[in-house]
Design a protein around this nucleic acid. Sequence first.
DNA 1: CTTTACTTTGACCACTCTGGTCAACTTAAT
DNA 2: ATTAAGTTGACCAGAGTGGTCAAAGTAAAG
Lengths: 207, 207
Amino acid sequence: MKKPFKKLDDSQQYHILTTAMAEFSAHGYKNASTNRIVGAAGISKGLLYYYFENKETLYLSTAEFAYDHFTTHLLSRFTTEAEGFIERLARLSKLKHLYFTQHPEIARFVTHMYYAEGLLERYQSKMQTLREWSMKSMYENVDMTLFRTDIDREMAMKMIGWTFEGYIKEMEQYFEAEGIDFDQVDTYFEQFDGYLDTMRKLYYKEV
Amino acid sequence: MKKPFKKLDDSQQYHILTTAMAEFSAHGYKNASTNRIVGAAGISKGLLYYYFENKETLYLSTAEFAYDHFTTHLLSRFTTEAEGFIERLARLSKLKHLYFTQHPEIARFVTHMYYAEGLLERYQSKMQTLREWSMKSMYENVDMTLFRTDIDREMAMKMIGWTFEGYIKEMEQYFEAEGIDFDQVDTYFEQFDGYLDTMRKLYYKEV
DNA sequence: CTTTACTTTGACCACTCTGGTCAACTTAAT
DNA sequence: ATTAAGTTGACCAGAGTGGTCAAAGTAAAG
């Protein structure tokens, strides 16, 4: 990353970097095309190389930006208040979902980083931190005594997690296919709360 | 597909077609490389074009073979006997899992076909049949009265499905990372049955 | 042996796309 | 008018593409 790029508007930096992220997550580092990036970003080839020394630097700058953005916008915004496991995961899921709709390219690129191998080795310790954070944020200060005692807790937690994953995935597929209709975003949250109630009935002790 | 290819051993046909499938599912039709295919299959470039008129025909032959193989090996092998929803889905999952371990390239290519758009339009009616079959095989002759009455059935079925998906996905990731150890395949099935018991406890009426 | 028909090879072709450069041009500030 | 920063797109060498084809190999028949 050269100095001229740092002098740009934040919004223009964001624009270029997220465009690059979309390309990188879609095709991986090697098969990503700088030509497509400049095309999609609406800048000339020369300008891209006026901003970045080469493809590799662009990729690494992109990774750094994504990591920082993700951590400051998502991790810092999350508190571990006392609550049940289902409520905890619900809050986490909503946060993730919100971040995904507001910054889809970054979110997708972060998951790409999560699994990518190759250039991102310098980030693997950071990724490890991420993994540990997601562990901690799932369990810390969670009241496990709410679970009914006749079923295995490990299993229960796994199944609850899979339920959230499945529901979110289904919603994403639905919105991707049909387009987001804001009337239906309401029913989306109603349904979500419905699942929450059901899960409490299934996994928690009777009151 | 030309006549010389049809004269080959079944095993050699299978070998070439599955190699092509791996390439196609990994990179999609357009970015798949015939050079990589011949390299991985261990045949010369000329021979591939002695067997197939061009890349497109290779792709379509591949699709036809995959579809036929999948339907005859999986669909035909499945019966809709009377049972509960959990047991039905467990059988379906085990079948899928078995097919996936025995014919991974075909399985992956079929999922590729499921979502691919472009050349496979002639197959979309067949894909629709597949979709209908998977609906039918999930519900036909299933005893729904086993469910407890205080939770929504639709939700219950969804959540059960997500649990199976999640468990299978986790197992695949584990086996991919650690390699398949046959001692652990046993514990795999024990665990699976454990989840079945738990699910019955969660979703079925008490006996 | 020779001939004939079927297989198989890999060098080769024209073409597209790649990451990256750079002289020329525009814009803004002095 | 001068200088410096910003921006363009034609251009390059190289890699990889789908596809061809003369040549070589193989096996059976006469």
